[in-house]
Nucleic acid binder design. Structure first.
Length: 618
RNA sequence: GCCACCUUAGCUCAGUUGGCUAGAGCACCGCUUUCGUAAAGCGGGGGUCUGGGGUUCGAAUCCCCAAGGUGGCUCCA
């Protein structure tokens, strides 16, 4: 990595910024109790508990000003160590109960067991997490903090920073713990890089899918319908349909068959699948008038297993591949909802393969192909993450440790074969029924989002006792391979709308061609009508703007809606029968700007849509 | 769900320390204009200032509650 060098310098600098901020806050609020202050992407934070007061964004200026003083003082960062018992006494005397708690944990367990705490931030001596005798401190000026380091030499050796936001957090992330405030800062080596980062945030704001969704008329929310329940307009629906059609074409090519299932089920289905025990609280439940308990489906696999299991299956008919793009419903916590990224009704482009264990690998690779073809078409580069279970938390999963390891090794082997070492492993990110190959998409602003997933599942076939009859005439346990290409269409669209900034390629554009009339005279109107009909026959999405507005205004409106092709129709076109399309600015254009006959033009656009080429330069 | 902040017309936003019938631009509707590649002109309609309670002679403005939103936390099959 080219920026490796920078990474090495940035980390201690950002960490030192956290200490500088803590120094400033301690000066301003001497009674403050400090939590932890680690480095995060793009900066740092510190958790603080200020007695009898809340910080707000308005305090940022004050804190920033004080931080600048600390930086100007250029205080040296001095490292020293203390035996753990002395350190505990220090924390007591300093009135730092949170630090004291951390130190006690260190002493007792040798580590802070809470996995949510970044152990590296504590004063642990490197390399030992079994026995802690000594912890390290860093001091700058009259501020001392329990800290592992490393730090820059002095408070003057830092780059540019800006305090970003404040938010409430629980001490060590546990709800019954006291509430603290987390103050986030951005920090970079230079003023220029900080500005670049802030500009990126500005750009992200401009392309926010919630904003574009409104401007481009893609989806809306209604207070009567409720939060987290998007309503898709005709334009947004076109976008969804076209994306889904592409995925389904790729799947059908790979031997998938479409199935259809009801959106509710008796709870018995989920008791059997294990979902009831694990996700009971997140289910939308329904009680019938006769008192039977039903639930909205939160996922589709259990339903699909019942189609598979509706009759005895021979090994000869496997793999059986079902696909089903359908909504699932999850009762998420209200504070979690946001735009399309997190909703209560999720449209999954779901697929399940029922196959023998020996077929799982080739099935997984087949699905991987589909994922790669789809994401290369939409211009989003992928990175692989192997999501594994957390052995220290085995009770969160169904199945035995041995089985998990077997399947994880199988997935790892598939990953290695396909991409070598070019993937990351994430312990604890597995689904409760099996490990996953997760695909992370990198958008045009460099942000990563989890999108597609391929999962090998032995748990549900076990739970539903899914078998096939094998060559010996015996029952053989099968496995399921789950795969979602877009995952959640809502979340995928939140990513894709921001990735593309709403400048959709022709195959996805809700409106592909706009026809602008120069005047409202009869022959112009008739000509436009004729053009419209011809375009519709070719399956094009076309809108005629025959409003009594200036041509300039109508072109502006077409631009604002990010329509790929605009035709201005007046006397000239009527006489010559030729058009010179106006092409949306981001689209790559062949060298000579040309005129077409109407038929040529429409056929060219139809072909562009059909081939799903992307002429946009994102 | 928890914490902080926000909510004025369909949209984007003005609205002094509480003080006249609450404003603008865009959008919408009507009329004029019939126009050549990013905003023609004039006129008009539209608001229980998110909802409910309170304080006050008087509330968009202050307080409380609720809903919705935003940023985080936690969660995410």
């Amino acid at each position: 990595m080219a920026d490796n060098q920078q990474q090495i310098d940035l980390h201690p600098m950002r960490h030192s910024m956290a200490h500088i901020m803590a120094t400033a806050i301690t000066r301003l609020w001497p009674e403050v109790r400090l939590g932890v202050g680690p480095v995060v992407d793009n900066g740092f934070y510190y958790d603080v508990d200020i007695k009898g007061g809340q910080l707000s964004d308005a305090d940022f200026e004050k804190i920033e000003a004080e931080m600048r003083k600390v930086i100007a003082d250029n205080q040296e960062f001095v490292r020293f160590t203390k035996p753990i018992d002395e350190a505990i006494i220090w924390a007591q005397q300093a009135g730092q109960p949170y630090k004291e708690e951390l130190l006690n944990d260190l002493k007792r367990a040798g580590t802070t067991s809470a996995k949510d705490l970044d152990v590296a931030e504590l004063g642990l001596a490197a390399g030992d997490d079994a026995q802690v005798d000594e912890v390290s401190f860093y001091q700058n000026g009259d501020f001392t903090d329990l800290c592992r380091g490393p730090h820059v030499a002095a408070t003057g050796n830092v780059g540019a920073f800006k305090l970003m936001r404040v938010s409430g957090v629980y001490w060590r992330g546990k709800e019954d713990n006291p509430q603290m405030q987390r103050i986030y800062g951005a920090a970079f080596a230079t003023e220029k890089e900080l500005r670049q980062y802030l500009n990126m945030l500005e750009e992200a704001k401009k392309r926010d899918h919630r904003k574009l969704g409104q401007e481009l008329d893609l989806f809306v929310f209604s207070p009567l319908v409720g939060p987290g329940l998007p309503l898709w307009t005709p334009r947004g629906t076109t976008l969804r349909k076209e994306l889904d059609r592409f995925v389904q074409e790729l799947r059908d090519e790979a031997g998938f068959q479409e199935v259809t299932i009801p959106h509710i089920t008796k709870k018995d289905l989920y008791e059997k699948s294990g979902h009831w025990a694990k996700f009971k609280d997140e289910l939308f439940k329904i009680t019938t008038r006769e008192g039977h308990e039903y639930a909205m489906k939160p996922m589709n696999c259990p339903h699909h297993t019942q189609i598979y299991d509706s009759r005895p299956r021979s090994y000869r008919e496997l793999p059986i591949r079902y696909r089903d793009t359908t909504m699932v419903y999850r009762d998420e916590q209200s504070g979690e909802l946001g735009g399309l990224s997190r909703v209560l009704c999720i449209t999954q482009d779901d697929a399940h393969v029922f196959c023998r264990l020996s077929q799982a690998k080739s099935e997984a690779l087949r699905l991987w192909d589909i994922i790669e073809r789809f994401y290369s078409a939409v211009g989003i580069p992928l990175k692989l993450r192997l999501s594994l279970h957390d052995p220290s938390n085995q009770s969160a999963y169904i199945g035995t440790e041995e089985k998990w390891e077997e399947v994880e090794n199988a997935l790892r082997a598939i990953a290695k074969e396909r991409v070598g070492d070019d993937f990351i492993e994430a312990v604890g990110d597995a689904a409760f029924y099996g490990p996953k190959l997760d695909f992370l998409g990198r958008d045009a602003l460099g942000r990563e989002h989890q999108v597609a997933t391929v999962q090998i599942d032995f748990g549900q076939p076990e739970g539903f006792d899914l078998t096939c009859t094998n060559e010996e005439g015996a029952d053989e346990r099968i496995v399921m391979v789950h795969c979602a290409v877009m995952g959640s269409l809502e979340r995928f669209l939140s990513v894709y709308i921001e990735h593309s900034a709403g400048k959709f390629p022709v195959w996805l554009a809700p409106e592909q061609v706009r026809v602008i009339t120069v005047n409202q005279e009869e022959n112009t109107t008739l000509f436009a009508d004729d053009l419209y009909k011809k375009a519709r026959l070719l399956g094009l999405r076309i809108v005629v703007d025959n409003d009594n507005e200036s041509v300039g205004k109508k072109i502006r409106n077409a631009e604002l809606m990010k329509v790929p092709y605009t035709l201005v129709i007046g006397q000239k076109e009527i006489e010559s029968g030729e058009v010179t399309p106006r092409i949306r600015k981001d689209m790559e254009v062949s060298a000579e700007q040309q005129s077409y006959t109407i038929e040529e033009f429409l056929k060219t656009v139809a072909n562009e849509a059909k081939s799903r080429v992307s002429r946009t330069s994102l």
